[in-house]
Write a protein that binds this DNA or RNA. Structure first.
Length: 337
DNA sequence: GGAGTAA
DNA sequence: TTACTCCAACGCAGT
DNA sequence: ACTGCG
């Protein structure tokens, strides 16, 4: 198998076959089936996806470091299964693959995984079998998981050393069919309400899928998932009370009014996750979850589709990481709210 | 995607 | 060697 | 207990 450095991998753009990528410091990861088409409409391949992650490695790793991975794998790309071949959740009676061709897999056998991949045996449900989660500790691990067909990276909200203490709150603004303008308005409303009522600062990025993500950084090892969820629920309720025309807590798509944006606070729980910053989404267009500056949100001068596997690397090289201060902004929840 | 097994 | 088969979450809320 | 949702 050809052995390439990361520089050679990016420059030579091998379009097929298998390679060994030399990451230096004695680490190497095998990358296979580079020619597999993961985005049939655009023709993006598994090799393109791997090159994306190699080129943004320094930007994305801080948002993954030491966090357990919730894996959703697409070893055959995002091409949907043929009608009729679709199947449902195994734990609810049928097969395992999702409608979009992906499937969830938490458990990785530490015996078969390369030595550089750290796993953590975690129990998430009482009485259920503990599961070996992969933990993001280095670039080799990230690329190994991508090679397994992982497109988006969904890290826990807490790190290995403090698994029960999330170091941010997440609000997911999901428009479904609501006007884009309402999502932007709601994001600004959340930011302003949060600052005014609690003094807390938040950061914003596109989800890469259809909405926006707001992250409120928290001091490490300070708050439990329960505390954070309780706060998030109360705060979301306050926002919906004040902005009832554009915001809702209605989770059911059938009951959700079409113009309203779902303010989802429920992801703030142990074992749940949202797509990390700079993650590629398993969606048409190979869109990327892109950190934004609040000033560009105020001006409304961006579209989700602006940020893709092709556009983000050069853009990042130009403007750097807009979330650089996320983890150097430790905050505490207000004692009373 | 990969491990295991049958041919 | 190739050609198969088999395997692969989690948690909350509403009903 | 089961379903819908993310």
């Amino acid at each position: 198998m050809d052995k390439l450095t990361t520089g050679e991998f990016l420059a030579n753009r091998p379009s097929s076959g298998d390679i060994t990528l030399d990451l230096g410091a004695g680490q190497a990861v095998e990358l296979t089936h580079l020619e597999k088409v993961y985005w049939p409409d655009e023709g993006f391949t598994k090799g393109d996806l791997l090159r994306y992650y190699v080129s943004v490695a320094d930007f994305i790793m801080p948002y993954l470091q030491d966090r357990p991975a919730i894996l959703k794998r697409y070893p055959n790309g995002i091409r949907p299964l043929p009608a009729g071949a679709e199947v449902k959740r195994k734990d609810r009676g049928t097969d395992f693959r999702n409608r979009d061709g992906g499937f969830f897999q938490q458990n990785l056998d530490p015996a078969t995984v390369p030595p550089f991949v750290k796993t953590a045996l975690l129990t998430t449900i009482e009485m259920a079998h503990p599961v070996n989660y992969a933990v993001y500790t280095n670039l080799a691990t990230l690329l190994y998981l991508v090679n397994l067909g992982t497109i988006a990276h969904n890290p826990w909200h807490s790190r290995l050393e403090n698994l029960d203490s999330p170091d941010y709150i997440v609000f997911d603004l999901d428009p479904h069919v609501a006007p884009w303008e309402n999502v932007v308005q709601l994001a600004l409303a959340v930011r302003d309400t949060l600052l005014k009522e609690t003094g807390l600062t938040c950061f914003i990025k596109t989800s890469g899928s259809s909405g926006l993500h707001l992250f409120v950084p928290l001091e490490a090892a300070r708050h439990s998932y329960e505390e954070v969820a309780t706060f998030a629920e109360k705060f979301a309720g306050l926002v919906v009370d004040r902005f009832p025309k554009i915001a809702t807590l209605e989770r059911s798509l059938k009951k959700r009014e079409p113009d309203k944006v779902y303010l989802d606070w429920l992801q703030n729980a142990r074992g749940k996750a949202v797509a990390a910053a700079y993650t590629v989404r398993a969606k048409p267009g190979a869109t990327v979850s892109m950190p934004l500056d609040w000033s560009e949100v105020e001006k409304g001068v961006f579209r989700l589709a602006d940020f893709t596997i092709e556009t983000v690397p050069p853009l990042l090289a130009k403007r750097g990481d807009l979330w650089k201060k996320l983890f150097s902004t430790p905050q505490r929840l207000p004692a009373k709210f």
